[in-house]
Amino acid sequence: MWSIGSRALFKRELSRFVRRPKNTFMPPAITNVLYFAVFGVILGTRIDDVAGYEYLLFILPGLIVLGTIANAFENASFSIFHGRWNEYIHETLTSPLSYLEMVVAYVAASAVRGLIVGVIIAAVGWVFVPFTVESGSFTVENAAFLVATMVVISALFAGFGIIGGLVARDFDDLTVMNQFILRPLVFFGAVFYSLTMLEPFAQYISLLNPMVYMVDSVRYGLLGHSDFLELAPAAYAEVVPLLSLGVLTALTLAVLALDVYLFKIGYGLTD
């Protein structure tokens, strides 16, 4: 699965975005500077603490998730679609790589891009609101949980990006996926507010949004705060974060399996 061939493809994918920071890393850095400046510095002082945290600190995990998944998705979908559009994906398809190796390489590279962007956003956030271990209940367990969650969600959206890149018929389709599906789900994914601020009905509706679980998990990992822990019945309180991670991991594996299947049948790739 991690052969010389898949490493070569991974390296090629990595090089593509690392050598173009102006296109890949600068935009999310600038966007988040704007978010922090407007929501944090200008409006933040007029907004009360949320769930006991300074507003800027409260939204930071959500912004990290937003940047991470958007970039993981965008990288995978662009790489696949651009390769199809210009047909240079044939270089990969005519090689002896197994379909699993191809998917693993594409997903791994896109997940890495998502994670790098997540770290950049965290660094930008730190400049505006220097969070420390004391900011939340940041423990070794939480750190491991945070890393695991970030890896899983970046891989999940890289996997979705593969599907997007295979399904898209032109560049507009990619924009539609990002702007009309991904962003609304993230913005209604409790990035800028706490679920506890919603009416019960809106809370239930929110539970249908997978982004809610991702944002909450990362917030739990980074700050030690989970809306679910406050909303869930006491009997489930201790397992809620792990359950979220478990479901996300299962979903990621299912999406990757679908990716491999699509490569195998040549969906969008072969005639």
């Binding site: 052969s3 010389i4 061939g5 490493r7 070569a8 493809l9 390296k11 090629r12 090089s15 593509r16 270089e91 990969t92 090689s95 002896p96 790589l97």
Partner: peptide, 16 residues
């Protein structure tokens, strides 16, 4: 995206 020498290296890499 890459200089042609790297393109060839990538292709060789895919072949192990």
């Amino acid at each position: 995206f890459f200089p042609i020498r790297e393109v060839l290296m990538h292709k060789a890499g895919y072949h192990g």
